[in-house]
Design a protein around this nucleic acid. Structure first.
Lengths: 140, 140
DNA sequence: TTAATTGTTGATCATAATAGTCAACAATTA
DNA sequence: TAATTGTTGACTATTATGATCAACAATTAA
């Protein structure tokens, strides 16, 4: 039950983009260097973020990546599932038909609750929050 | 970020033991049959539960397994980490020294919060709760 | 229009974690 | 003492993850 490096790398990449919000596109190479992410790996894991409309990509010379929306509008609840596939601890959480026992299963309810409590926490954090904290600006 | 089958099997085995609380020992073979768990696998995953004093084992003829404590005193918060190794989504949660970045890391705080919210949910569920639900006795 | 640049995609490989099995062993009871 | 039952460690198979590489598409600037 460990988080994959995709989620770790991905959130770091997004933080990097959030730190440079409003400054135009960042090269994937620079993101990779700054955040210590293998470049060819970054290219793959950023793809779902682009397709989901969280990251904007521009090809060709002078291209790169930038956030498609303001950092305060992007929560981890939106981001982590894209990177991780889903935050369901078991497939039955979102797909009860897949398990022959789901009707009578006593445990499924627990896994659903668990997912909901995680999601609630993730919803409470925006990229802007991360930027604030990174800058030490956070009053908290 | 999926739960391992150890946790699924393990909780089912515990549920089975809880259902028979007060009736003496259950054979591992019977637990395995009833809950559809490969017997040799069950033997391995039950071991940490025995060592942690949650399950009591008796060897030899007429031996078997039973809960070492009343079902209402055993929470999932105690059980799942034993089966799963830990519920930390990342090692840095419980072992900051392992990561060179943990000081300045913006993300670690999130992973810690996530773990705490999961643990809170798991703490709220005892084996007795599961039994009640399995019996349809739950008033809720 | 061409060359350089940069993201996109798919194939592929390596490694590690998980799931599962088997056999020798220790303890207990009848 | 023989039958029973849990304990442990070694081992195998399968899958998921992490990572790389190469061909390709789009864009810009000379």
């Amino acid at each position: 039950m460990k988080l994959s490096t995709r989620a770790r790398y991905g959130t770091r990449a997004l933080l990097e983009l959030a730190l440079h919000w409003g400054e135009g596109a960042l090269l994937s190479r620079d993101i990779a260097d700054k955040q210590n992410i293998p470049l060819p790996y970054l290219e793959h894991l950023i793809s779902p973020l682009v397709q989901a409309g969280i990251v904007k990509s521009t090809r060709g010379a002078r291209g790169g990546f930038s956030l498609a929306r303001p950092p305060e509008d992007i929560t981890l609840s939106e981001v982590i599932p894209l990177l991780e596939g889903s935050i369901d601890l078991l497939d039955c959480v979102n797909n009860p038909e897949g398990c022959p026992y789901s009707d009578s299963c006593v445990m499924r309810r627990i896994w659903v609750e668990l997912k909901e409590s995680m999601d609630k926490t993730l919803q409470s954090v925006t990229l802007k929050d991360l930027v604030r904290q990174a800058n030490g600006t956070q009053t908290l």
